[in-house]
Amino acid sequence: MSLVLPSELVVDRFLPTVRAMLATRLAERGLTQREIAAELGVTQAAVSKYVGGESGGDDRFRDDPETVATVERIADGLDGGEMDGYDALAELLSLVRSLEDRGPICELHEEEMPELQGLGCDLCVRGLDPDVRAERDVLANVRTAARTLASIPGMADYVPNVGTNVGMCLPQPRDETDVAAIPGRIYAMGGRIEIPANPEFGASKHVATAVLAATAVEPEVRSAINIATDDDLLEAARTIGIDPLEFDADYEDRGEHLRARFDERGAVPRVAYHRGAFGIEPATYVFGVTAVEAADLVEALLETAAT
């Protein structure tokens, strides 16, 4: 693992780019290279390189509207005397905090540390606290589960026309924004499973409804995966000791209906299904304590159905 601090990226990539942008803007306003060097706290030789376009830098910052606006504001302030070094520093520190919050600095950080990708990392903004760790763990679990589904032989045959999704909620979820899933759903194409994006919270109302219904009855059951209803898979569930629960597809409040059916059973079944209705595709939900557990159960069902 490559351990890279966001502050390293600020020093190595952000600061040289912004200095070059400021030097150019101040030169355009008529300041001499010596005056610019004094304002920026760099040598006149450095300013010459900045103004001559020899400083390199990162286009992500040059093209970022917030960075451009901040640089223009600082350049105007320094040129007009409304700002001093303290004011300019305050503007830049505020900009850095903003760019660390899912901005270009965050993007660069994920490139330097691929382990952060898809985790919704916001350590720079919120720090390491229990809530952040819980969110990170859920996102990582959903991502692993999605990859597991993609690796299951024959899985593409059990992806509904509306797509498959895998969802997992935080402990004690309040609503669907506390359920992580794959944006745009998982779909089959040419016999392969395609995962269009990394998981996000609030990405799927459909699977979130099933997850929230399950965890309301059994708090430890925090994940669900939807697949196509298939008699061979239902029989496979019975073979491995699971009694699938059938529920009605045509209802007004799916969440309430599922909770009522789970209450009648006295527990959340690991497999629940419906046969569809007018305009509603038949669907089966596979539940688990975690997303990975639910994905492993899907794999076991497919393997059992194939034997």
Rank of each mutant, 00 (worst) to 15 (best):
E66L: 15
G118H: 00
E111N: 11
D122T: 12
C124G: 03
L22C: 08
Q33M: 05
H109S: 03
A37S: 06
Q44A: 10
V159H: 00
D87G: 12
A150W: 08
R62G: 00
I152S: 05
V42N: 04
G81S: 10
A38N: 12
A146R: 00
P153L: 08
G163P: 05
D131V: 15
R60W: 14
D129Q: 08
R126E: 10
L99H: 04
A134F: 01
S55W: 03
D79R: 12
C121P: 01
G163F: 04
C124R: 02
S98D: 08
T164R: 03
G57Q: 01
S55G: 05
E39S: 14
L123K: 06
D64N: 09
L22H: 08
E112F: 15
V68K: 12
D84W: 05
L26P: 02
A156C: 08
P65W: 01
P153N: 09
T32S: 15
E115P: 10
Y50G: 01
L78F: 01
L78G: 00
Y86N: 14
Y86D: 13
G41A: 07
G81E: 08
V42G: 02
L40F: 07
T70H: 00
A37E: 02
G127W: 00
D59Q: 14
T144W: 13
L99N: 06
E100P: 02
L22S: 09
G120R: 00
I105L: 15
D122W: 13
G52D: 01
S151H: 08
A134E: 05
T70F: 02
G77D: 03
E54Y: 13
V138R: 06
S48N: 09
G127E: 02
A20I: 08
S55V: 02
D79Y: 12
D76S: 14
R60E: 11
Y86A: 14
R133I: 15
A145I: 07
D64Q: 04
R147N: 13
R102L: 08
V138F: 06
V96M: 08
D63E: 15
V51W: 03
R126W: 10
V71H: 00
V42H: 01
A23M: 05
T70I: 06
I36L: 02
T144C: 11
L149G: 02
A69R: 14
T24N: 09
H109M: 09
E91V: 04
L108R: 13
I152Y: 04
D59A: 15
D64A: 04
L78Y: 02
D84F: 04
R62I: 00
C121K: 02
D157G: 12
G85Y: 03
G80D: 06
S55E: 05
I74P: 09
E112L: 14
V42C: 08
V51S: 02
G52N: 05
D59P: 12
T144D: 15
D122C: 13
T24I: 12
V51I: 09
G77M: 01
P160D: 05
D122M: 14
L99W: 02
A156P: 06
V162L: 15
R147T: 11
L116R: 14
V68R: 14
P160W: 04
T24L: 09
R133V: 15
M21A: 10
A38I: 09
E91Q: 13
E110C: 10
S98R: 14
D64C: 05
G118M: 03
V132H: 11
R34P: 06
A69M: 13
A75N: 01
E135F: 04
M113Q: 11
V96S: 07
V51F: 01
M83E: 07
L78M: 07
G103H: 00
S55N: 06
V47H: 00
A20S: 15
